[in-house]
Nucleic acid binder design. Structure first.
Lengths: 205, 205
DNA sequence: GCTTCTATTGACATTTTTGTCGGTAAGACC
DNA sequence: GGTCTTACCGACAAAAATGTCAATAGAAGC
């Protein structure tokens, strides 16, 4: 019943890359605000200011939007970690800041929820980008500290797994147990510190 | 085109409790085999040998089936942990077996995937059962070992979070990184051990 | 201005999934 | 055997979600 019911929308014609970027940025905002289950074709399109057929034209399917977004977020995270790395900083502080970024990305930025979604829908197998992302962090950030590459990969594997667990279930679990928000993250950080301390002290392995 | 196309099915009339149990057991098998996204009304009903309207009659909605199943699995896990607890066993072994059950439940039994599903769909808030489940484990299993209740709750919180992370992402992440399956779980167990060792040695906290 | 290319659109088709409703039959109780 | 309760069924309704397709309109090149 709107007066403008039959008004045609004025088109914006973007380059393919700009169009994809526009859509992915909108999808990321949607992910952070409402979670991955809100990444429906119609919703993503509306947030990006286009029609859902346009999204399909650029990505082929909604699943491809999901994986493209996940890859984009992985690249952002890796870039952020490498960029923020200050060789002058003491090793302990550098480890702390790396862990903080990891937790932030998976917790507040929604990466853990998107990853869980991909895992549940079986789309995670296509994320071959993960391997090179890990290699990049290991080679540029952990190996220079004199860490054995294999041990560094293990450290990344547990850290990421833990950070995803915290990002996904941390606050809900804490709330269900009557603990303050952020408590799980606190304990998880402590867990990693304790492990590294025990490792250095030769208590394990 | 089937010859028996219009054959009426012979009804089995169960008690309400038996009917619910039948449906939940079928749903659990489905969960383990295909994951939570396969827990659709029609699929659960088919697996249980009833019509989907029957499922709705007993649970009201498909979301209620999900939470009922999650609660059932939580109860099973708690019962299993308390039951298998042997006071004669050395403390270290008891901790190991508790951790093993936790990892098994969340990994192979599908609890982590269901929990993630509930988390993503916003249904996890209704799992008030969690609190009493934790209390039960703390009171009957951890406190008797002379552990401070608050510390015991913290231990449960991190352990469960970590186990969920492993159960959900462990194998996929390991595979994406070219590690053998089970590697993530191995590292996670080591992480917990190291933490406790560091704690005992006074290296942290 | 004219042509070409294709990003974008609107309308339609289809599938999947959840939920409603009136009627039917199994089994308990008398 | 008769009655009553309600677990169960079949058919239908409706919404949500993905995807197809022909037509349109920016923008660049000539």
């Amino acid at each position: 019943m709107s007066i403008e019911a039959s008004a045609k929308r004025t088109r914006v014609r973007r380059s393919p890359e700009a169009a994809r970027e526009n859509i992915l940025a909108a999808a990321e905002a949607l992910l952070i605000e409402k979670g991955p289950q809100a990444l429906k074709l119609a919703d993503v399109a509306a947030a990006a200011g286009v029609v859902h057929a346009t999204v399909l034209h650029h990505f082929g399917s909604i699943a491809d939007v999901h994986t493209a977004l996940m890859e984009r977020m992985i690249r952002q995270l890796v870039a952020q970690i490498l960029e923020a790395d200050d060789p002058d900083e003491p090793a302990a502080t550098r480890a702390e800041s790396g862990a903080r970024m990891l937790f932030d990305a998976f917790e507040s930025r929604g990466a853990a929820r998107l990853a869980a979604w991909l895992e549940l829908t079986g789309e995670s197998r296509r994320l071959t980008l993960v391997r090179e992302a890990v290699n990049e962090v290991v080679a540029n950030r952990l190996a220079p500290k004199g860490l054995d590459p294999a041990a560094a990969e293990d450290l990344v594997l547990v850290s990421v797994t833990l950070a995803m667990g915290v990002g996904l279930f941390g606050d809900s679990l804490a709330e269900l147990m009557g603990k303050p928000p952020g408590r799980t993250r606190e304990l998880a950080a402590n867990l990693l510190r304790g492990w590294m301390a025990a490792f250095s002290a030769g208590l394990i392995r």
